[in-house]
């Protein structure tokens, strides 16, 4: 199994570093460019949620750790944060069929992650939140 780790400060302008790190690992794992793009979107959305919600957009609020692992079946991205325990997957999905008048403007990030990744799971280890996202190799 190949494993890579990166820790970034929990601020928006560090997200491109996180995405670039995952893109490189995904390419090394042999994912095609569409799958690599989906990993980029999933990491961007996850980190944005952590920074805006768990860390409240405050600098120095915490760090984000990214771990990429590849085995014979999956390319796995694990993203850990120090925010309060929060399972983003427990929220009801927004409805893509909703008319404009009934729509909220946001709330699509987690829905996109669920759609573009093959498997998504949430865990809390007593200290940190972990979102584990898998893409078939």
């Amino acid at each position: 199994m190949i494993q890579n780790r990166l820790t970034i400060a929990g601020v928006l302008d560090q997200i491109p570093r996180a995405c670039e790190f995952v893109v490189n690992a995904a390419r090394q794992a042999g994912l095609n460019e569409e799958a690599v793009h989906h990993c980029y979107l999933a990491v961007d959305e996850t980190c944005t949620n952590i920074i805006e919600h768990a860390y409240g957009g405050q600098p120095d609020a915490g760090y984000i750790e990214l771990i990429c692992q590849t085995d014979s079946t999956f390319f796995t991205i694990t993203i850990k944060d120090d925010g309060p325990p929060f399972d983003p997957l427990a929220r009801p999905d927004p409805d893509p069929g909703e008319p404009l008048e009934a729509r909220k403007t946001g709330g699509w990030g987690i829905y996109f992650i669920k759609n573009v990744m093959d498997e998504v799971n949430y865990m809390h280890d007593g200290q940190r939140n972990s979102l584990v996202m898998k893409k078939k190799v």
């Binding site: 793009h37 980029y40 979107l41 961007d44 959305e45 944005t48 403007t105 946001g106 709330g107 699509w108 990030g109 996109f112």
Partner: peptide, 9 residues
């Protein structure tokens, strides 16, 4: 590339 942040706007 456009994420959900762009859709919101």
């Amino acid at each position: 590339y456009m994420s959900s942040a762009g859709l919101r706007e």
